[in-house]
């Protein structure tokens, strides 16, 4: 499943996509993110699955543009910590 967390408002699109088929629940992203944006747990959108997968935490879903801001400097943007930490490449950001 491609789970798109985030939003689109008047100013633009801000989505973090988790490919739950690629995610193995290793939690590397959770440790890598300095702001607590990522979480891992049962897949709440697939009630019959027992696998744990990554998601964007409930309290951050409506403000990732702001919370992720410091990881996305306007100049010389380094790789995002969560994306870099994820071995199977399950995470992508839309902006």
């Amino acid at each position: 499943m491609k789970a798109n967390y985030g939003y689109k408002d008047g100013s633009g699109d801000y989505f973090i996509t988790i490919d739950t088929d690629k995610c193995n629940g290793c939690r590397e992203c959770v440790s890598a993110c300095p702001y607590g944006v990522m979480g891992v747990g049962p897949d709440e959108n697939d009630p019959f699955s027992d696998d744990e997968v990554a998601f964007v935490t409930e309290q951050e879903r409506k403000k990732i543009k702001y919370t992720c801001g410091p990881c996305k400097p306007m100049k010389n943007r380094p790789p995002l910590p969560c994306v870099a930490a994820c071995g199977p490449g399950a995470i992508s950001h839309s902006w």
Binding site: K65, Y66, G69, P70, P73, M74, K75
Partner: peptide, 12 residues
């Protein structure tokens, strides 16, 4: 303010 601050943090 926190929204404006996150913008400022992006430029330092």
């Amino acid at each position: 303010a926190s929204r404006i601050v996150s913008m400022i943090r992006r430029i330092g």
